[in-house]
């Protein structure tokens, strides 16, 4: 089975969008710059916001083409799970000020990010969250390939969404069994690796 990278998006503190950065200001300026109206965004935790925006950037050009959304899989990888929000929730159960927050607790599950993407785009395919020590192109390609091989789907949204210690990085790809007219990049560990090195380098040069 041939798989192709038909689109990708990238967010890091230094590199996100032609006019805004997500350094210091958080992710809201990017939400504003993308120009969508989705109030639920403000209720998300940082990890979900990051993944949500990366998926928005990824799908902006493709929204109309994703007709059969039923089978689209959403597969995310990261290192720190929901640890950023875990620490926030922990502050609400301080013995001196013990008011556990239900809305924060829900986001202490890393897979809520895949749910936010699924809800926004009506993707009812497989959603999965894998925790890996680092961004590993080989693991991402193998996992997505296995998922598409074993389900009826032709399409997956996949990538790396890491939010930790005041830094963040999202790298998302739209993977299809068919390539579209714009790109014929095969979905292989080598190509994913090339792409991420290129994106990170671009960031450092800015």
């Amino acid at each position: 089975m041939e798989l192709y990278i038909n689109q990708y998006s990238y967010i890091s503190p230094k590199h996100t969008h032609p006019t805004v950065t997500t350094a210091g200001e958080g992710l809201t300026p990017l939400y504003r710059a993308i120009g969508i109206d989705y109030p639920k965004f403000f209720k998300m935790d940082n990890l979900a916001k990051l993944g949500f925006l990366a998926a928005e950037l990824l799908l902006q050009q493709n929204k109309r083409n994703l007709n059969t959304r039923k089978d689209i899989a959403t597969i995310c990888f990261n290192r720190s799970s929901s640890l950023d929000t875990d620490r926030l929730y922990q502050t609400t159960i301080n013995p001196e000020n013990n008011y556990p927050s239900p809305s924060l607790f829900v986001y202490t599950l890393p897979n809520i990010l895949t749910a936010e993407i699924a809800i926004r785009n009506k993707f009812t395919g497989e959603t999965s969250t894998y925790i890996t020590p680092s961004l590993n192109p080989e693991t991402i390609v193998r996992t997505v390939r296995q998922t598409l091989n074993n389900t009826n789907g032709n399409t997956a949204i996949t990538g790396w969404t890491e939010y930790a210690d005041d830094t963040h990085e999202a790298f998302m790809m739209l993977i299809n069994k068919q390539h579209n007219s714009n790109t014929t990049t095969p979905f292989t560990p080598e190509q994913v690796n090339k792409l991420i090195i290129h994106l990170r380098k671009q960031t450092n040069n800015k």
Binding site: T129, T139, Q146
Partner: peptide
């Protein structure tokens, strides 16, 4: 071997078995 870690809320244990069969 690098292990696989799955964190999919309450369904994690079923996802892990599906992953095992795929691997």
């Amino acid at each position: 071997n690098e292990p696989i870690t799955i964190s999919n809320a309450c369904i994690s244990g079923l996802c892990a078995q599906i992953t095992a069969i795929r691997e």
